[in-house]
């Protein structure tokens, strides 16, 4: 079980800010494929991966990063602070 968080328009499209996900994916990319296969709202949120960033346990990562040992995955658009 892994905790998955969504922010900004990813949160809005998916409809929840966080959820616990049972996954057998080995990488972030694998997890995204599983989510897309689940329901239309995930497919919509992850339609353009170039606009999606990911953090593993609060550290920026990329889609090829392994999920082994990771407790929290966060998906969000490019950041717009400042």
């Amino acid at each position: 079980m892994i905790e998955v968080l969504y922010f900004a328009w990813l949160r809005e499209r998916i409809g929840v800010p966080r959820e616990r996900v049972e996954t057998r994916a080995e990488t972030v990319a694998g997890l995204v494929e599983e989510l897309i296969a689940r329901e239309e709202r995930y497919a919509l949120a992850f339609a353009d991966l170039a606009s999606v960033r990911v953090a593993l346990d609060q550290e920026l990562a990329d889609f090829q990063a392994p999920l082994a040992g990771v407790r929290e995955v966060a998906f969000f658009p490019p950041m717009t602070g400042g």
Partner: peptide
């Protein structure tokens, strides 16, 4: 600091106008 806060700190801005709201694009 500003350059990194803009693009590497996890904040997202949404703007509200008379005709609706939209997320600010990076």
């Amino acid at each position: 600091l500003m350059d990194y806060l803009k693009s590497r700190a996890p904040f997202w801005k949404k703007e509200y106008h008379a005709d609706g709201a939209e997320w600010v694009a990076a």
